[in-house]
Nucleic acid binder design. Sequence first.
DNA 1: TCACAACTAGGTCACTCGACCTAGTTTTGT
DNA 2: ACAAAACTAGGTCGAGTGACCTAGTTGTGA
Lengths: 190, 190
Amino acid sequence: MKKNAKAEKILDVALLLLKNEGDYGVTMRKVAALADMSLSNVQYYYKTKDALLKSMADRYFQSCLEQIKKIDTIQSDDCWKLEIEKLLRGFLVHGLEVTDMCRLFREYWAISTRNQAIDEHIKQYYREMVVILSDKLRPVAQSEQGLAKAVSVIIPFSEGYSITALAMPEDINSITSILQSLVVNLLQEQ
Amino acid sequence: MKKNAKAEKILDVALLLLKNEGDYGVTMRKVAALADMSLSNVQYYYKTKDALLKSMADRYFQSCLEQIKKIDTIQSDDCWKLEIEKLLRGFLVHGLEVTDMCRLFREYWAISTRNQAIDEHIKQYYREMVVILSDKLRPVAQSEQGLAKAVSVIIPFSEGYSITALAMPEDINSITSILQSLVVNLLQEQ
DNA sequence: TCACAACTAGGTCACTCGACCTAGTTTTGT
DNA sequence: ACAAAACTAGGTCGAGTGACCTAGTTGTGA
């Protein structure tokens, strides 16, 4: 049994609560009950609720970035445009069903409007996402300028699509195709 | 003094609280205090908290749609592409600063993941937004197909941009320009 | 004028919350 | 072996919460 196993389990359970019941739904007592330990025990690992919320955000945004890093870099071979489409589809698929990731981000977007620290976390997350995604696309980009434009289109669109997708008249295939040709054009910009 | 003046004031105050403190921040007592009336008085107009939250959502999404309806229809004159740009800028400007509208939508996006009724409200809102925006753009659309694609791009992008704008490398002018030429192309699709 | 509905105010109830306190038990380092 | 640190458990406290109750006051229509 790892030393930090309980502290990790508390974070797991707390994120589960955040996902299902929102930030005010995360109470020390509920966390304790779901983690199958006493209230005082939770409070031993996280002295205050703020400390718990901070640790949750630290770990969650970190894990999300690591997930993005796992995406394959687009290689400059003869089917790179197809690879772009696959990459875009991977982002847009969050619009079809509300995934755990979607739920947590929606909570954090809301919290960020009333919590300076979370707001900074999210901004930093998207800044790092820009860097990571740029690295993935750089091999097929004709200019840094075009690359910057491409990521500045992909990221906002995929976030917005995760919210609005089910209400749009065009389906994901059509949208992916439109976005793909736009991104390809931007990447080919001199 | 209108008959419903108090009921309306309660909704005003409650939306203010929702914006600033989230859904759990809306308590009957806080609403009463801010509306300068007694707790029982608030509870007279809205028997339960659920009833209050429902009325808030009903009125808010309604008012948002009416705001969108006020946007000028794009006329098919010789400067329609410039009008498109102006329209897009109006949407994207929500990315530069977190407006009241942004804050409330972020709250509702989060609430919708755990509240069926709000989820339906939001879906319906975006569906109506599709219709309204389509009407604005139809005069310059070469086909219904292209029109559907255009709105299916504009709406998700503007929502996502309101969240991510400040972390993107490209500024609003560059983004607006990219989106404008994309939308113009889609509208000219046969 | 009078009855009835609309409205207002103050209070109580059981419940939940984060923070704190105290007293044990286990583990660790020397 | 033993002291200190790490950990666990149970209890209490004041502050809020939504729902509910009762008793007044004002307004309106017949």
